[in-house]
């Protein structure tokens, strides 16, 4: 084992750690919200601007890069109770009104 080896191993470790940190940091949240009704994408919004999305039966809110269903006129309120989503692939579904909020 030479001195060069130790430096090399240290550099590799640092690169692996830096990559891991970079991926963990960038993977944290998705970038856009897809609003689907009847399985068709009707809106696409970036997550970095806060807004309120009024649909026929539901109201969704984007706030601090998180999405939640503010209200729904259905009986079960499952979508409202789902809470906040922010990660890629997460979704909120309102089955009675056939509304899906999905993060891409």
């Amino acid at each position: 084992m030479k001195k060069g080896d130790i430096i090399l191993l240290a550099v590799i470790c640092v690169i692996a750690a830096a990559l891991a940190v970079f991926f963990l940091y960038t993977e944290k949240g998705g970038k856009t919200l897809l609003v689907k009704v009847d399985n068709e994408i009707i809106y696409e919004y970036p997550l970095d601007t806060d807004r309120r999305i009024d649909l026929e039966h539901n109201t969704a809110v984007i706030e601090n890069s998180e999405v939640y269903m503010y209200s729904a006129d259905c009986k079960n309120q499952i979508c409202v109770k789902t809470g906040k989503i922010s990660k890629k692939g997460e979704s909120i579904v309102c089955l009675p009104n056939r509304v899906v909020l999905e993060i891409k």
Binding site: M1, K2, G4, D5, I6, L8, L9
Partner: peptide, 16 residues
Amino acid sequence: KVPFFSVIGISALGGV
């Protein structure tokens, strides 16, 4: 041929 490294380091980089 690089004298700075031994078999261990070169093999480690090869593995990476």
